[in-house]
Design a protein around this nucleic acid. Structure first.
Lengths: 197, 197
DNA sequence: CGAAAATTTGACATGACTCAACTGGAGTGG
DNA sequence: CCACTCCAGTTGAGTCATGTCAAATTTTCG
């Protein structure tokens, strides 16, 4: 039961308070699961069947292009949802990898079960609507940042906005998340250190 | 009544068929409006009060950074929704401009009315949930494209994916949408022409 | 038709990338 | 628990994609 606390309070923070019977419903459909570090929960070519809520842990979503370069599309940790959303929502083969960066505890629900839940319980649909809308606002911000800022500014921004990530994600992953090479990020960081002292 | 056809069929395509009484509800809350070319429907500093469905027309959303450079965040035309979603969803001041690129016909609903509709009519909430989810899949794709492709590839992609936009949006707006300067886009286009002949 | 805006072109500058070599630390196996 | 590997991170040198600035040209629209 304790494990559920975080996700229920996540519902509440989005203005959706579940009744006792709804919590029961939740239990039936969401499955608890432990994911080991380096384990993949999504791989290209396979449909991303379930939506994943992270109780505790860190994940990285990325694509690999024809030249073999990796590009980080998303990071996610405690209290976030993670998926290849294009694959999950449309139930088409994924283009992303999603991998655990540390041992993690998650809850997962299948798309089909989620649809059932949405249809039968208005509150769940409200939650997922709000969740998706917040997601859009979030992605819109990221696109603006990518279009308007230099590599260095994007790094600074990330530093200020997500300090909690800095020690939990490898630098090469962060570099490709910010749209630059590992080498270049390394230079930016050193430039800063030298300037400061 | 005829004007509503497009939006109702948009609902249907997302798997949401409205009953007669729901259509009535729709009428009460969505307001029809004509927007003149160059007219703004969203401006920085003001809350983006309403969600806008485009029956016929073209819009451009963009931000202006400190150096005065414009960056196009979104294009939208017939049968799309357009807003500064961060502002609309969270009801905070906008950072974007949204302007009509041609005389347009739209339907608009206020955030408060939309919330009422969602609470009272499950079907509307389903529609907006699906809509938001599709939006996320769409934005995720755009982020991947921005991170993994060169300026030229992004242009080619746009050309193939949205040929209908090519003659309806100015080139400087397209350039900034694709994350490059007008001059560079111009060179790409010319390179192509010369290579072909 | 004329002014203003959009697009093109040229010359030059630079942010960011590539490639290759080096360093250091974490993980692994004997 | 040491030795070895391997991978992440750093650094240097050279290059390239894309940006800047300014002027010329074309298009749009009052």
């Amino acid at each position: 039961m304790t494990d559920l606390e975080p996700i229920l309070s996540n519902f509440q923070r989005k203005g959706v308070a579940l009744s006792e019977s709804e919590v029961q419903e939740f239990y039936k459909l969401f499955k608890k699961s432990y994911i080991k570090k380096r384990q993949f929960i999504v791989q290209p070519g396979f449909v991303n069947k379930s939506r994943t809520y992270i109780v505790k842990g860190t994940f990285r979503g990325y694509v690999v292009n024809n030249e073999g370069q990796e590009h980080t599309i998303s990071f996610a940790m405690d209290d976030w949802w993670v998926s290849d959303f294009e694959s999950y929502i449309n139930q088409i083969p994924a283009t992303m990898f999603v991998v655990a960066l540390e041992d993690s505890l998650v809850y997962q629900i299948d798309r089909a079960d989620e649809e059932k839940l949405n249809a039968s319980h208005h509150k769940f649909e409200t939650y997922f609507r709000i969740n998706a809308e917040k997601g859009i606002a979030f992605l819109q911000k990221r696109i603006i940042s990518n279009l308007t800022q230099t590599a260095e500014q994007r790094y600074e921004d990330f530093l200020n906005t997500y300090p909690q990530f800095m020690n939990r994600v490898p630098q090469y992953a962060l570099a490709s998340f910010l749209g630059m090479t590992t080498e270049y990020l390394s230079r930016i960081r050193n430039r800063k250190v030298r300037t400061k002292s």
